[in-house]
Structures are given as C-alpha cells and as structure tokens.
C-alpha cells in the first residue's frame, strides 16, 4: 500500500512545488517543466526543511574563474547550511554517492486508471481534503516504495 494520490497536476504548476504529508513523512512534489519529482522535506545533513530552500540551477566550471549556470530549477539548496541536492535524483552535489535525500517517483495517471486499481492505491491526503477521484481527471501519484534516481 504505497501509492498515494497527492493532487492533480494543476496543483503544482511548472517551477512550483507543494509539500504533502504522507504516512507521517513530509514530501515535496516538484514540477520541472511538466515532469514531476518528489523528495523528502528533510535534509540528510541536519534535518533542515529542504523543500523550503532556494530552488536554483547547477553551477559548474570548465576551469578557474569560469562559471556555467544551467539546468535551472533542478537544484534545491537547503535553507540551513546551503548544501545542494538534485531534485530529480536526491543526490547531493558535495557527496553524491554518500549523501542523498530520499527521492520518490511521481506519475501522472488518469482517474479512470486509478479507479480500476482500488486495492493498491491509497487515496492519501488528497481525498482527505474531500476531493474525490473522478475518472475524467489526471492525478499525481506518489510511490513511496519506489526510488527515483537510482
């Protein structure tokens, strides 16, 4: 029982995010140019509220004194110590293999498809806000058992 409906795509416009609480865990759902990603709202360093950090791009360099800034909006910087994390994978910039925030897959599914699998999907906070899932709409489904970025 690890798939949760957490909203509709319209709840999280491109460039925005929203934090949901699922199974006691705060998780940020991010929209990157129409693709949805989810990371835990808890920095692996000291537990800072990662999802309220500045969302920025990747700063890299081909050599001393030169700066490249791209992949805008894909990096999340923790508000407590400014460690950077990739939203798509949860990997930290400073120690990508060792320090990661848990990242989860998010899919967009039709209400019709969701209605067809009632045994597996947990409605989650979305229906708790009294939004019934209707077959005509699309929904964001967060998979807590999955791992994004591996």
């Amino acid at each position: 029982m690890s798939r949760h409906v957490v909203g509709t795509p319209a709840d999280v416009p491109p460039g925005e995010h929203k934090v949901v609480t699922v199974d006691g865990r705060e998780i940020g759902i991010f929209n990157l140019d129409g693709e949805f990603y989810a990371v835990r709202n808890r920095c692996p360093h000291q537990g800072g509220p990662l999802c309220s950090g500045i969302r920025t791009g990747a700063v890299s360099s081909p050599g001393p004194g030169r700066y490249d800034y791209d992949e805008r909006g894909t990096i999340l910087r923790c508000p407590w110590h400014q460690w950077e994390f990739e939203i798509t994978t949860g990997r930290s910039w400073c120690e990508p293999d060792r320090v990661r925030v848990r990242a989860y897959p998010v899919s967009v599914e039709t209400g019709a498809a969701l209605a067809a699998e009632p045994g597996e999907r947990v409605p989650g906070p979305y229906t708790a806000e009294t939004y019934p899932v209707s077959v005509e709409e699309d929904y964001l489904v967060l998979d807590l058992s999955g791992r994004a970025g591996d």
Partner: peptide
C-alpha cells in the same frame, strides 16, 4: 544566518 544549526541536530 545561512548556516544555522538546530539545537536538536547539532553534533547529533
């Protein structure tokens, strides 16, 4: 400041 430490986290 930008490198704030929370009391229940520092040197945890």
């Amino acid at each position: 400041h930008w490198d704030f430490d929370a009391p229940d986290q520092v040197m945890r």
